Simulated assay, not measured.
Amino acid sequence: MKVLQGSYHYFICSHLSWVSNGVVGSPAFAAFDQGYDVFLGNFRGLVSREHVDKNISSEQYWRYSINEHGTEDIPAIVEKIHEVKTTELKSSQPSPEEEVSDDQPYKICAICHSLGGAAILMYVITCRIEEKPHRLSRLVLLSPAGFHEDSNLVITLVEYLLLFLAPILAPLVPGFYIPTRFFRMLVNKLARDLHNYPAVGGLVQTLMSYVAGGDSSNWIGVLGLPHYNMNDMPGVSFHVALHLAQMKHERKFKMYDYGSVSANMEVYGSSEPLDLGEYYGLIDIPVDLVAGRKDKVIRPSMVRKHYKLMKEAKVDVSYSESEYAHLDFTFSHHEGLLAYVMSRLQLIGPSPKRQLGLKPVKLRRKDGQVN
């Protein structure tokens, strides 16, 4: 039986982070070499920023939060994998009765890092609330986002800045990105120059190491990789950054707060956004959590918070902690990490029976703009 791997990335990055170390040290190639089909997914706003509406304004284009990553982007990716595999396996399209069944001729294991971890958890939980199949068999989450109250001074200052200035910045700065090819070319050249000048490069490495932790010696060079080129340098919505600041401030893994009781009522049926941590009991597949002791972006204490809530909710969850920093999970070559991830893939077993009709919650999404 085929096992598939879906990989999701982190803040201001793309799927190419999973192959950035080439055929020897990259997680995607390691899984492929073991015989798995590998699918790499991008969230909206990353890499090519095309849109079906060629006249869409910048403000409309960037009007999305992590909600849209978890409830629209990942479902679209998973359904595309389902379409590809059923076609490859010469299976007919399932009937409406079969569509709600977990009996599918393949398994999907989602391997996610940072923001991708938060989005995939949101995806699984909202699918279960809405009584839809999520089609996944296992989650391997590397330093997943969601809880952020234990952070360094720089991240805390950014949190307060975003929350305080949100009403002003949201219409003025809808997204954090470099708008023209010319300026992306300058940034790309600057990154390469920093990598070539030891004195300046060393200073930037020190600053990056303070914010993210770990050995930053190869991170400046990463900025010259294909996914940071002049054509497709990634960007991120202001509302995604604000959503992370809201989570940190509230000390909860919550969906996006639209800023008013009426707006939240329209989307969630309540005055407050959905607290995803309260619904961990809906997770019906095994979850493997991995934390990095040198990670200063998402510290081990925050990954352990996921683990504690999942254990209390009777989720089949494991926890592992190693000497990694935040960017090490994808950009650095660690044989131990690759071996651990491969060992988790081998544990995929039969899908559990679906248990529907648990605590009902209204979840009606606003119209989203999809790349």
Rank of each mutant, 00 (worst) to 15 (best):
I129D: 02
P226W: 07
K252H: 10
L282D: 00
E272P: 05
K2E: 11
F182P: 01
E50V: 14
Q346W: 12
P171E: 05
V154I: 06
D295S: 00
P167G: 07
H148R: 07
I298S: 03
L242K: 03
G224V: 02
S216D: 07
E99A: 09
G41S: 12
H113F: 10
D257W: 00
F164G: 08
D215W: 07
S301Q: 08
T206Q: 13
W62S: 09
I155K: 06
H227C: 15
R304T: 08
W18L: 03
G235H: 01
S137Q: 08
F39T: 04
P352S: 04
Y8R: 08
L40M: 15
Q93L: 12
F39E: 02
A145L: 09
H134V: 09
Y197H: 14
S17W: 00
F238C: 02
Y280M: 01
I56A: 03
R49Q: 11
D215N: 15
G357R: 10
E97S: 14
R128Q: 02
I74L: 04
D257R: 01
D102G: 06
R251S: 07
V204E: 00
G224I: 04
R44Q: 11
E130V: 05
Y10M: 07
E266Y: 10
L289R: 07
Y256N: 00
G214A: 07
Q355P: 08
E131W: 05
P273H: 13
V84K: 10
F164H: 08
K2H: 13
E59R: 12
H82Y: 07
Y258N: 02
L274T: 04
Q355I: 12
V222A: 08
A28L: 00
H134L: 06
N264T: 13
Y160W: 07
S322H: 05
F147D: 05
E149V: 03
G357Y: 09
V287Y: 10
V261F: 03
C127K: 13
I66T: 05
L223P: 00
H134Y: 11
H227G: 10
R181G: 08
P179I: 04
R304N: 07
